[in-house]
């Protein structure tokens, strides 16, 4: 490398991790039963829908009619959604049946 180079390197180009690739690193033993159930009718009247951005697994999708579409299969079972939910009764939350759900290897 030339010793008189008087510029610093440009910022690093980091690998952008696509969300699907990020979730593909996590093991899920998906159970038959949806352990979290979302009542989309209740969600329609929710003004914040904080679950959409806060869920670390990005499982809450707003629908065109103002409701929420939820998929339980890649859930971390963390509890963030029910903590931020401000619509009484929109979420029915339980753990997956024994042995099912997320399996962390390097938690």
């Amino acid at each position: 490398m030339s010793m008189n180079s008087h510029h610093v390197d440009p910022p690093e180009r980091l690998p952008v991790v696509a969300f699907e690739d990020r979730m593909a690193t996590v093991e899920f033993r998906v159970g038959q039963r949806a352990h979290i159930v979302v009542d989309s009718d209740v969600c329609r009247s929710c003004t914040t829908q904080a679950c959409v951005t806060a869920c670390p697994a990005n499982l809450f999708a707003p629908t065109s009619d103002g409701g929420i579409l939820f998929n339980y299969e890649q859930c971390f079972e963390c509890g963030t959604c029910y903590m931020v939910c401000n619509s009484q009764g929109a979420l029915t939350w339980s753990y997956p049946d024994g042995g099912h759900g997320v399996v962390f290897r390097k938690g």
């Binding site: 910022p11 690093e12 980091l14 990020r22 690193t25 971390f76 963390c78 509890g79 962390f104 390097k106």
Partner: peptide, 22 residues
């Protein structure tokens, strides 16, 4: 990960697991 104080330490690494907990 993109911060100049952190990024160089992670150069060339592979993502093994993403996790979340309260």
């Amino acid at each position: 990960r993109a911060h100049p104080a952190i990024a160089p330490g992670l150069r060339g690494a592979d993502l093994k697991e993403y996790a979340a907990h309260l």
